[in-house]
């Protein structure tokens, strides 16, 4: 589904990703862990097409297409979704209007009919329940004045609505208390399916207690230095990133 080969990317003059490889198949949940500054967020941003990064080498194929050649909206329509670490506030942009525009543009690109107001409302009310979100959210401006927890839930709510093939969760646990984390994780788990893959980017193992990954990768200095099963996350939590970095240096 997603194949990243030797990916190199710069921010300005600084090379952040230095030859990164990752292979994701439908149904898999991959965790990408790593210390601050290892390139986790850069990976999420480069995959979703954010400006400000220049790719200097390697390739990314998603659903058989050259992902890096596509505009952000084309990537979204192809089934890629990024849950933002810092969801952006859009004052004055009504949530319902925004969600409807997003859903219908994605449906349209998939050759599906656009939803009318009634069926759209029915659909979002159903999805809101999954995330324990209140109807009043629909009348508000996108993320404007939302609490940290609400913003993160709103991200997963959008994911539930847009039904991506590959969801990238960028530090979705950051800034969440334990109750909010549980709600978000439940929401994510409800979306797990044999057709859908996830890339969970996180600094802490905590989130992985709730969203159990199939494969854990350790990202350091712009490369995947180690991959393993979910037990790798636990080991990292106990021994710290120093442990795996030391091993890497020794090897």
């Amino acid at each position: 589904m997603l194949s990243v080969k030797g990916l190199r990317a710069n921010v300005g003059e600084n090379e952040i990703l230095k030859g990164l490889d990752i292979e994701v198949r439908p149904g898999e949940v991959h965790a990408i862990m790593g210390p601050n500054g290892s390139g986790k967020s850069t990976l999420a941003h480069v995959l979703s097409g954010r400006e400000g990064y220049s790719v200097t080498g390697g390739s990314v194929t998603f659903e058989g297409q050259d992902l890096l050649a596509l505009e952000p909206e084309e990537r979204a329509r192809l089934g890629l979704f990024l849950a933002f670490q810092y969801p952006v506030e859009l004052p004055g942009v009504n949530n319902t209007y925004f969600l409807k525009a997003a859903l219908n543009s994605i449906r349209k690109s998939r050759g599906q009919e656009e939803l009318d107001a009634v069926s759209f409302l029915r659909l979002i009310k159903e999805k809101l329940k999954i995330l324990h979100l209140d109807d009043s959210l629909l009348k508000r401006a996108v993320n404007a004045g939302f609490s940290g927890g609400e913003k993160k839930r709103n991200e997963i709510f959008q994911m539930a609505l847009l039904e991506p093939k590959l969801a990238i969760l960028d530090e979705t646990d950051s800034g969440l208390d334990i109750d909010a984390l549980r709600v978000v994780a439940d929401g994510v788990n409800a979306l797990r399916s044999p057709q859908r893959a996830m890339l969970v980017v996180t600094h802490y193992q905590r989130l992985l207690d709730y969203i159990e990954p199939d494969i854990v990768h350790v990202l350091a200095k712009g490369r995947i230095i180690r991959s393993g099963g979910k037990e790798l996350a636990r080991e990292l939590e106990e021994k710290g990133y120093g442990w795996v970095l030391d091993q890497e240096q020794a090897a």
Binding site: S48, G49, R50, E51, E71, P72, E73, R75, A76, R77, F81, L82, F84, P87, V88, L90, F98, A101, A102, S105, I106, S109, V142, Q158, L162
Partner: peptide, 15 residues
């Protein structure tokens, strides 16, 4: 704001 624009585009909305 480029940030805002990117947020919308990342949800499939054309520029």
């Amino acid at each position: 704001e480029p940030e805002m624009l990117f947020y919308l585009r990342s949800r499939g909305i054309a520029a």
